[in-house]
Amino acid sequence: MNEFEWLRQTRALREPVTPRRDLWSGIDAALDAAHAEAEKPAPQRNHRRVQNWLIAASFVGLSLFAGSLAVHLRDRTLANATAAATLDAGRWRPNDPRLAGAAVELDAASMELRQAMEQAPRSPALQRLLYRTQKQQSQLRQMEHQAG
Protein backbone atom coordinates (compact mmCIF):
# COMPACT_ATOMS: atom_id res chain seq x y z
CA MET A 1 0.00 0.00 0.00
CA ASN A 2 1.43 3.34 -1.00
CA GLU A 3 0.73 6.91 -0.06
CA PHE A 4 -1.79 7.50 -2.84
CA GLU A 5 -3.97 4.61 -1.71
CA TRP A 6 -3.96 5.93 1.87
CA LEU A 7 -5.07 9.33 0.69
CA ARG A 8 -7.88 7.79 -1.35
CA GLN A 9 -9.07 5.75 1.64
CA THR A 10 -9.02 8.75 3.97
CA ARG A 11 -11.07 10.79 1.46
CA ALA A 12 -13.58 7.96 1.34
CA LEU A 13 -14.04 8.27 5.10
CA ARG A 14 -15.48 11.78 4.62
CA GLU A 15 -18.45 10.45 2.67
CA PRO A 16 -21.65 9.49 4.54
CA VAL A 17 -22.22 5.78 5.12
CA THR A 18 -25.69 4.28 5.47
CA PRO A 19 -26.08 1.54 8.07
CA ARG A 20 -26.91 -1.97 6.96
CA ARG A 21 -30.09 -1.98 9.06
CA ASP A 22 -32.35 0.73 10.44
CA LEU A 23 -31.10 1.77 13.92
CA TRP A 24 -33.98 4.13 14.75
CA SER A 25 -36.48 1.37 15.30
CA GLY A 26 -34.33 -0.14 18.09
CA ILE A 27 -33.69 3.27 19.66
CA ASP A 28 -37.38 4.17 19.54
CA ALA A 29 -38.36 0.83 21.12
CA ALA A 30 -35.81 1.30 23.93
CA LEU A 31 -37.09 4.83 24.65
CA ASP A 32 -40.69 3.61 24.70
CA ALA A 33 -39.79 0.81 27.12
CA ALA A 34 -37.97 3.22 29.44
CA HIS A 35 -40.91 5.65 29.34
CA ALA A 36 -43.39 2.85 30.09
CA GLU A 37 -41.21 1.64 33.01
CA ALA A 38 -41.11 5.16 34.48
CA GLU A 39 -44.90 5.46 34.32
CA LYS A 40 -45.50 2.23 36.29
CA PRO A 41 -46.54 2.79 39.90
CA ALA A 42 -43.75 2.09 42.39
CA PRO A 43 -44.23 -1.11 44.40
CA GLN A 44 -45.43 -0.61 47.97
CA ARG A 45 -42.46 -1.03 50.28
CA ASN A 46 -43.96 0.12 53.52
CA HIS A 47 -41.83 3.23 53.59
CA ARG A 48 -43.78 4.41 56.62
CA ARG A 49 -42.92 1.27 58.59
CA VAL A 50 -39.23 1.55 57.73
CA GLN A 51 -39.26 5.22 58.65
CA ASN A 52 -40.89 4.42 62.02
CA TRP A 53 -38.22 1.79 62.76
CA LEU A 54 -35.46 4.25 61.91
CA ILE A 55 -36.95 6.89 64.18
CA ALA A 56 -37.29 4.36 67.01
CA ALA A 57 -33.70 3.20 66.54
CA SER A 58 -32.43 6.77 66.62
CA PHE A 59 -34.34 7.44 69.88
CA VAL A 60 -32.89 4.29 71.43
CA GLY A 61 -29.37 5.31 70.39
CA LEU A 62 -29.86 8.83 71.68
CA SER A 63 -31.24 7.52 74.98
CA LEU A 64 -28.28 5.19 75.44
CA PHE A 65 -25.87 8.01 74.71
CA ALA A 66 -27.61 10.39 77.13
CA GLY A 67 -27.75 7.73 79.84
CA SER A 68 -24.08 6.84 79.54
CA LEU A 69 -23.18 10.53 79.56
CA ALA A 70 -25.25 11.10 82.71
CA VAL A 71 -23.64 8.12 84.48
CA HIS A 72 -20.18 9.32 83.47
CA LEU A 73 -20.83 12.85 84.71
CA ARG A 74 -22.32 11.56 87.96
CA ASP A 75 -19.30 9.34 88.59
CA ARG A 76 -16.97 12.21 87.79
CA THR A 77 -18.86 14.57 90.12
CA LEU A 78 -18.75 11.98 92.92
CA ALA A 79 -15.04 11.43 92.34
CA ASN A 80 -14.39 15.18 92.44
CA ALA A 81 -16.43 15.57 95.63
CA THR A 82 -14.62 12.65 97.24
CA ALA A 83 -11.26 14.04 96.18
CA ALA A 84 -12.15 17.47 97.56
CA ALA A 85 -13.30 15.95 100.85
CA THR A 86 -10.15 13.87 101.16
CA LEU A 87 -8.02 16.89 100.29
CA ASP A 88 -9.70 18.92 103.02
CA ALA A 89 -9.32 16.04 105.44
CA GLY A 90 -5.73 15.50 104.31
CA ARG A 91 -4.70 19.12 104.87
CA TRP A 92 -4.02 18.70 108.50
CA ARG A 93 -1.61 21.22 109.99
CA PRO A 94 0.04 20.19 113.21
CA ASN A 95 0.68 22.77 115.89
CA ASP A 96 4.16 21.41 116.55
CA PRO A 97 6.60 23.02 114.06
CA ARG A 98 8.79 19.90 114.13
CA LEU A 99 5.92 17.88 112.58
CA ALA A 100 4.74 20.57 110.12
CA GLY A 101 7.36 19.78 107.46
CA ALA A 102 6.52 16.08 107.52
CA ALA A 103 2.79 16.88 107.27
CA VAL A 104 3.38 19.08 104.19
CA GLU A 105 5.46 16.36 102.52
CA LEU A 106 2.90 13.66 103.24
CA ASP A 107 0.06 15.89 101.96
CA ALA A 108 1.96 16.52 98.71
CA ALA A 109 2.74 12.82 98.29
CA SER A 110 -0.89 11.92 98.93
CA MET A 111 -2.12 14.45 96.37
CA GLU A 112 0.36 13.22 93.73
CA LEU A 113 -0.69 9.62 94.35
CA ARG A 114 -4.38 10.54 93.95
CA GLN A 115 -3.61 12.24 90.63
CA ALA A 116 -1.73 9.14 89.50
CA MET A 117 -4.66 6.97 90.61
CA GLU A 118 -6.99 8.97 88.35
CA GLN A 119 -4.88 7.86 85.38
CA ALA A 120 -4.48 4.26 86.55
CA PRO A 121 -7.26 3.57 89.10
CA ARG A 122 -6.62 -0.17 89.36
CA SER A 123 -2.88 -0.04 89.91
CA PRO A 124 -2.03 -2.18 92.95
CA ALA A 125 1.31 -0.44 93.42
CA LEU A 126 -0.31 3.00 93.59
CA GLN A 127 -2.95 1.70 95.98
CA ARG A 128 -0.25 0.30 98.28
CA LEU A 129 1.68 3.59 98.19
CA LEU A 130 -1.46 5.59 98.96
CA TYR A 131 -2.28 3.26 101.84
CA ARG A 132 1.25 3.65 103.24
CA THR A 133 1.08 7.43 102.91
CA GLN A 134 -2.25 7.56 104.73
CA LYS A 135 -0.84 5.28 107.41
CA GLN A 136 2.15 7.60 107.87
CA GLN A 137 -0.21 10.59 108.12
CA SER A 138 -2.17 8.73 110.80
CA GLN A 139 1.02 7.96 112.71
CA LEU A 140 2.05 11.62 112.48
CA ARG A 141 -1.30 12.69 113.97
CA GLN A 142 -0.87 10.19 116.78
CA MET A 143 2.61 11.58 117.46
CA GLU A 144 1.16 15.08 117.78
CA HIS A 145 -1.53 13.90 120.20
CA GLN A 146 1.07 12.07 122.26
CA ALA A 147 3.35 15.11 122.31
CA GLY A 148 0.51 17.14 123.68
Rank of each mutant, 00 (worst) to 15 (best):
D107L: 13
S138W: 02
S68V: 04
P19W: 06
P43M: 03
A56R: 06
G148H: 00
A33K: 12
P43H: 05
E3S: 03
H35A: 12
A79Q: 05
I55G: 06
L99E: 06
L62T: 12
A12F: 04
L13M: 13
H72R: 15
A66N: 09
A116G: 03
R93K: 00
Q9K: 04
T133D: 00
R49F: 08
V50F: 02
H47G: 14
E15C: 05
M1E: 10
N52A: 15
A70E: 04
R14G: 05
D32S: 09
F59N: 01
A81K: 09
D96R: 00
W24L: 11
L73P: 01
N46S: 13
W53G: 03
A125L: 11
L99G: 02
L78C: 03
A125I: 11
F65E: 05
L78E: 14
R114V: 05
D96K: 02
W92I: 00
M111E: 13
R21S: 06
R128F: 06
L130G: 00
A84F: 06
P43W: 01
A100S: 14
A103S: 10
A81C: 01
K135N: 07
F65M: 14
T10P: 01
R122I: 00
Y131A: 08
E37R: 12
H145C: 04
A34P: 03
S138P: 02
N52V: 08
F65S: 09
A100H: 14
I55L: 12
L31Q: 12
W6L: 10
R122P: 00
Q127D: 10
A125N: 11
N46W: 05
K135I: 01
E39N: 10
R128E: 13
R11A: 07
P121Y: 02
R20P: 02
S58A: 15
D107G: 10
A83G: 08
S123G: 07
N2T: 03
D107S: 15
W24V: 02
L31W: 07
E112P: 01
Q136H: 08
A30V: 04
R20M: 03
Q146E: 14
R20E: 14
L64W: 15
S63W: 06
Q146N: 11
L13V: 06
Q142R: 15
D88Q: 11
T10K: 11
A79K: 03
T10W: 11
A30I: 05
L129V: 00
Q44L: 08
A70C: 04
P94S: 03
A38Y: 10
P41K: 05
L7M: 11
R74M: 12
